[in-house]
Simulated assay, not measured.
Amino acid sequence: MDTQEKPHILLIDGMALLFRSFFATSAMGHYFPNAEGTPTNGVQGFARHTMTATSLFKPSHLAVCWDMSAHTFRNDLFDGYKVNRPEPAPELVPQFDMARSVSELIGWKNYGILGMEADDLIGSMVTIWDGKADITIVTGDKDLLQLLRPGVRIAFMKKGYNVYDIYTYERFVEEYGISPQQFIDTKAFTGDTSDGYPGVKGIGPKTALKLIKEYGSVQGVIEALHELTPAMRKKIEEDMDMLHLSRKLAEIHCEIDMNDPIEELTIPLYDDKVRELMEREGYSMITRQAKSLSL
């Protein structure tokens, strides 16, 4: 492929868009049930969000990545991983499969692997296409900051369907003063309350960032324990096992074989066929969005 024709791949964190869309409308009691009475608010919001992102970021190709189950390889590493998360609302549960099904009906390329998180699929895509494509990731998950590099940007959902907080490699380095890869090492110290792993007790984001700026990595900090204050040294020594485990849990796995030809990621036309299909399934919000984008 000619370098001037470098593709621009939009990677969608499917579950992040589904959850966000569900809560945005369910908070007002809007579930948009279909003919069978099944709520569709999350599904329709997910599709509308993805369609809007294609018109906003103008990618040449697209893939949607999904979490396939609650249990992943990280649960095998640590029993407490994500166990403190509440059960999804009953109105959301049937929409997990529906969202993937709608995504396939529209014609988007979908990825989901049992035992892996969407983050790992996105990370693997970034690794495979590094330098060969420009990549925009749409998500709400700050963990993905570690994937930033030249040619990759992350669009964090902020408001509605079209307001994003966009991070580039350059912006991250300027704001944090470390490389995106070193972001993993800061999370090893802070842990992640939403994912349920604690890191080192008593070390927050500011201290973690200071340590990594000074010593470069978890290993660098451990090798320089003698230089730290006795109180800091004690905290790290007492939570040493969890520090190493937290680093493993924080790192996105980027080695899944997802090397499909670029043609498989081509964005479908939002034409009459797609609109009729969505209308027949009772997804009027998606139909309207498809219509507005195909004019």
Rank of each mutant, 00 (worst) to 15 (best):
L249P: 09
K273G: 00
R233P: 02
D239W: 06
K235F: 02
E251M: 13
D260L: 09
P268T: 03
I236R: 05
E255G: 14
D239N: 10
D272F: 11
H253A: 07
P268D: 01
N259Y: 14
E279V: 01
I267R: 09
P268G: 03
K273H: 06
K235Q: 05
P261Y: 12
K235M: 02
N259T: 13
D257W: 15
M242A: 00
K248D: 10
H253D: 13
M232I: 04
A250T: 13
K234H: 07
R233G: 01
D271K: 10
P261L: 05
Y270C: 02
M240K: 10
L265K: 07
R247G: 15
L277F: 00
E279F: 07
M258F: 14
I256H: 12
M240L: 11
E237I: 04
E276Q: 13
L245K: 10
D272Q: 13
P268K: 08
R275F: 00
I267K: 07
K235D: 00
R247Q: 15
M240T: 01
I267D: 03
C254K: 15
K248Q: 15
H253L: 08
R233L: 00
Y270S: 01
E279P: 00
R247I: 07
I236K: 05
D271R: 10
D257R: 15
D257Y: 15
D271V: 06
E279I: 01
Y270R: 12
R275S: 01
A250W: 11
A250K: 07
Y270T: 01
S246W: 14
D272K: 14
D257N: 15
K273M: 00
I256D: 03
P261D: 11
R275T: 00
R233H: 04
L277P: 02
I262D: 02
D260H: 12
D272V: 12
K235N: 01
P261C: 05
L269F: 12
I252E: 06
E238K: 15
E238A: 11
V274W: 03
S246I: 11
D272P: 05
D271W: 10
E251Y: 09
V274H: 03
M232P: 00
E264I: 12
R275G: 00
L243Y: 06
I252F: 10
E276C: 04
E251K: 13
Y270A: 03
D272W: 13
P268A: 04
D271F: 05
M232C: 00
M240W: 09
I252L: 03
R275V: 00
H244I: 05
E264M: 12
D271N: 15
L243Q: 05
I267A: 03
K273A: 01
E237N: 11
M278L: 01
A250L: 09
L249H: 08
M258D: 02
